[in-house]
C-alpha cells in the first residue's frame, strides 16, 4: 500500500488532464472555454500545492528530520510554478495565443520534471516515513482517505 503516492500522483494526473484541455481550447481559439479551464487548472493546482506545503511537507520534515532538503526544493519550484501559472492566466485574459502557448509549454515541461521528482523520490520516501502517521494527514489534506479503509 502506497497511499501517499497514490493520492498525490492522482492529483497530478487530474491537473494534467485539465491542462491538456485548456491547451487545446487555446489552440482552436475557444477563449471562453480556455478561461473556464484555466480557472479550474489554477484552482486545482494551487490546492494541490497547499495540500503539500501545509500538510505533507511539514509532516515529512518532522518525521525524517530533513528540513532543508527535498521539501525545500519542491517549495521553491512551487513558487516558480505559481508565477508561470499567473503569467499564463494574464495571457489567457488578453487572449494572446502565442504567449499563452509558449508559457503553457514552459509550465508543462517544468511541472513534469517537478512531478517526476515527487513521484519517483519524495512520495515513495514519504510512504515509508509516514506509515504510522497517515491519520495526521487526513485533517490537513482535503480529501485524503483515512487509513485502514
Amino acid at each position: 500500500m502506497e497511499p501517499i503516492s497514490e493520492f498525490f500522483s492522482a492529483q497530478h494526473r487530474a491537473c494534467d488532464r485539465v491542462f491538456e484541455q485548456m491547451e487545446s481550447a487555446v489552440s482552436r481559439d475557444d477563449w471562453q472555454q480556455a478561461e473556464t479551464l484555466f480557472n479550474e487548472l489554477s484552482e486545482d493546482t494551487l490546492q494541490h500545492f497547499s495540500s503539500e506545503e501545509q500538510g505533507l511537507f511539514p509532516l515529512f520534515e518532522e518525521k525524517t528530520g530533513m528540513r532543508a532538503g527535498p521539501t525545500q526544493v519542491m517549495r521553491s519550484e512551487h513558487v516558480e510554478l505559481r508565477d508561470l501559472l499567473q503569467r499564463m492566466g494574464d495571457a489567457v485574459g488578453v487572449k494572446d495565443r502565442d504567449q499563452t502557448l509558449g508559457l503553457a509549454e514552459t509550465f508543462f515541461l517544468f511541472l513534469q520534471q517537478h512531478n517526476v521528482k515527487e513521484e519517483q523520490m519524495l512520495y515513495p520516501m514519504a510512504d515509508q516515513a509516514l506509515q504510522g502517521a497517515l491519520q495526521d494527514l487526513v485533517g490537513k489534506v482535503p480529501g485524503f482517505p483515512p487509513p485502514g479503509r
Binding site: 530533513m66 532538503g69 527535498p70 526544493v73 519542491m74 521553491s76 521528482k117 523520490m121 519524495l122 515513495p124 520516501m125
Partner: peptide, 9 residues
C-alpha cells in the same frame, strides 16, 4: 534513495 540529490545545487 538519494534524496539529497534532489537539491538544485
Amino acid at each position: 534513495m538519494n534524496l539529497a540529490a534532489l537539491s538544485l545545487e
